[in-house]
Each structure stands twice: as structure tokens, then as C-alpha cells.
């Protein structure tokens, strides 16, 4: 078995803490008098935060050159999907008790539910093909497929914006984070950032050489 590094372990622990916290609150009466809504909102929020973190790995790597962060992408993305699935199950089972007539009556005219569902449907194939085996099998296709995660991220932000009453600052902030990450990884910006880093690096090396020869 592959050895799990402390950094890998950190991601798993950090991603499971919110779930443990939610279960603890539910078991000890720490939720509000509308606990079903609490569970829906909290699982939804965790899914969004983990998705944004997963999408931030590549930009952080471009900006800093720190490689281990790239190994966090997959677990963070999978945990995001896990919380999204819990979020959806809470909606179906806890909120609506799987009553299809009620669900239909309510979702038929709710655009925010449609975009949320669309985001989840995009995440399903991405989660299923996240293994090394599928990565090899799909080759170049894999990268193209997994770019869809940005569309899912955008839809989640829209889902959140449409679900809140008036103060949309928080969902917009998460949207801005996704947008900034996307911007950093677009080829021209990425090249420019890498060039800057390379230049700084050579400047530093020259400085070091200069100080050695002095």
C-alpha cells in the first residue's frame, strides 16, 4: 500500500471535521429548531468551500511552485462531491421524505434547484473518473472532461445567489475566488506568472553568485 504522507492525512482530517461537527451538533441538540434546514445549508456550504479549495490547488501551484498542493486536488474534489451528495440526499429524504409529488410541486418552478441539480450531475462523472485507472484510460479526454468542474463551480455559485434573500456578498466572494483561480490558470496569465517567477529566481541566483564571487 502507498504510504500516506502527513500532508495527505491533513486534507482527509480537515475535510471530515465539518461532518463530525455536524453529526455532533445534531446528536447534542446543537442545531436550531429547524434542524433539517441547518443540515441542508451546512452540507451545501461545505461542498462549495471544498470545491473552491480543490479548484485553488492548481493556481496556488502556479503562484508558488509548491508541488505537494497538487495532490490535494483529487481528495478535496471528492469530498466536495461527497458533501454535495449529502446535501442532495438531505433535500430528498429529510426535507421531502422522498415524497415525489411534493418535490415535483416545489421544484417545478424553482430555478435555483435546477442549477444546483445540474452542478451535481456534472460532478457525478468527474467523481467516477477521478481514479488513476480512468485517467489513463481516457488519456487527453480526461483533461477535457475535468475542465467541466469550472462550470459546476459556477452553477453552484448561481445556486447559492438565487437561494439567498438579499445579501449576496458571500456567494459572490466564492464566485470571485473561482474566477480568480480560473484566470490564473489560463495559458497567457500562467505563462506570464511563470516567467516572472523564473526571472526572480535567476535574479536571486545571480545575487547569490555575486555574493559568492565577492
Amino acid at each position: 500500500m502507498r504510504k500516506i504522507s502527513p500532508l495527505q492525512l491533513l486534507v482527509h482530517v480537515a475535510a471530515l471535521i465539518p461532518l463530525a461537527w455536524l453529526i455532533f451538533d445534531a446528536a447534542t441538540g446543537g442545531l436550531s429548531v429547524n434542524p433539517i434546514q441547518d443540515i441542508e445549508q451546512r452540507t451545501g456550504k461545505y461542498a462549495l468551500v471544498l470545491l473552491v479549495l480543490s479548484l485553488s490547488c492548481t493556481p496556488v501551484n502556479i503562484l508558488t511552485g509548491w508541488a505537494p498542493v497538487l495532490r490535494w486536488r483529487r481528495p478535496l474534489g471528492l469530498y466536495a462531491f461527497g458533501y454535495a451528495a449529502l446535501h442532495f440526499l438531505a433535500f430528498l429524504g429529510l426535507d421531502y421524505a422522498f415524497n415525489l409529488r411534493f418535490i415535483w410541486a416545489d421544484v417545478a418552478n424553482k430555478r435555483f434547484i435546477f442549477v444546483g441539480l445540474a452542478a451535481l450531475l456534472i460532478l457525478i462523472p468527474l467523481a467516477l473518473t477521478s481514479t488513476r485507472g480512468w485517467q489513463k484510460r481516457l488519456g487527453k479526454m480526461w483533461r477535457a472532461l475535468h475542465r467541466w468542474v469550472y462550470l459546476a463551480g459556477g452553477l453552484v455559485v448561481v445556486h447559492y445567489v438565487w437561494a439567498v434573500k438579499s445579501d449576496i456578498r458571500e456567494p459572490l466572494l466564492w464566485g470571485a475566488a473561482i474566477g480568480a483561480g480560473l484566470l490564473i490558470r489560463t495559458p497567457p496569465v500562467r505563462r506570464w506568472i511563470l516567467a516572472q517567477r523564473a526571472r526572480r529566481l535567476t535574479a536571486k541566483q545571480r545575487g547569490a553568485e555575486a555574493s559568492r564571487s565577492a
Binding site: I36, D95, A97, N99, A105, D106, F112, W162, K165
Partner: peptide, 21 residues
């Protein structure tokens, strides 16, 4: 008469699980 965010066909009675019409 639906509302864009919340169901008006069903509701949750605080203290109960699930929904009622």
C-alpha cells in the same frame, strides 16, 4: 402562487420532520 425561492405548496412545521401541504 409560487415564490422563486421557497415552496408555497408545502411547508415545514417547526418541530416536525418532513413537510405538510
Amino acid at each position: 402562487v409560487p415564490h422563486p425561492r421557497w415552496s408555497q405548496a408545502t411547508e415545514r412545521r417547526i418541530g416536525e420532520g418532513g413537510r405538510r401541504e
